[in-house]
Amino acid sequence: MITGRVWSFGDHINTDLIMPGWVYDQSEEAQTKATFSAVRPGFADAFTPGDIITGGLNFGTGSSRPAARSLRNLGCACLLADSINGIFLRNCVSFGLLAVECPGIGALAQEGMDLSVDLETWQAGPAEGGNRLAIRPVPESLLKIMQGGGIFPVLERSGHIAPAG
């Protein structure tokens, strides 16, 4: 069971908002620090590792940039959205950010509430009890990569890339 404080977002949150273009060519640290800076200045500083991000429809739409990595680097325990853009979901798998589709979560989750996520029963809801929503189960093969740090550790072990320097 994962429990964390919610940062709530709406529909069609795009990756230009999560990771602005002006940090595209900068370091991973600079990218992480700029997370959501255009719409929520100070977000990266206020975010505590273990917090949860929720969104509505089509979360992560737009550019294939490594926005999921910035959320992972902030320590996001889980991202839940009504639906997640296909490319963004790939990046969640490949960079190792736990991300699940949970129809109805955008309306249910309120900013600052404690949310609990159960990957055994595939349900999420307020930690203090009440309405619990069904999570679309993530196929085991993808969940393993998501929770195992992404694809790079796999490619390091198989000798396809050098260990991170």
């Binding site: 294939s64 490594p66 490319i87 790939r90 490949s94 960079f95 992404g150 694809i151 790079f152 890339i161």
Partner: peptide, 9 residues
């Protein structure tokens, strides 16, 4: 479109 790690894979 895929991500950077997907390209390296």
């Amino acid at each position: 479109g895929v991500g950077e790690p997907d390209m390296i894979q």
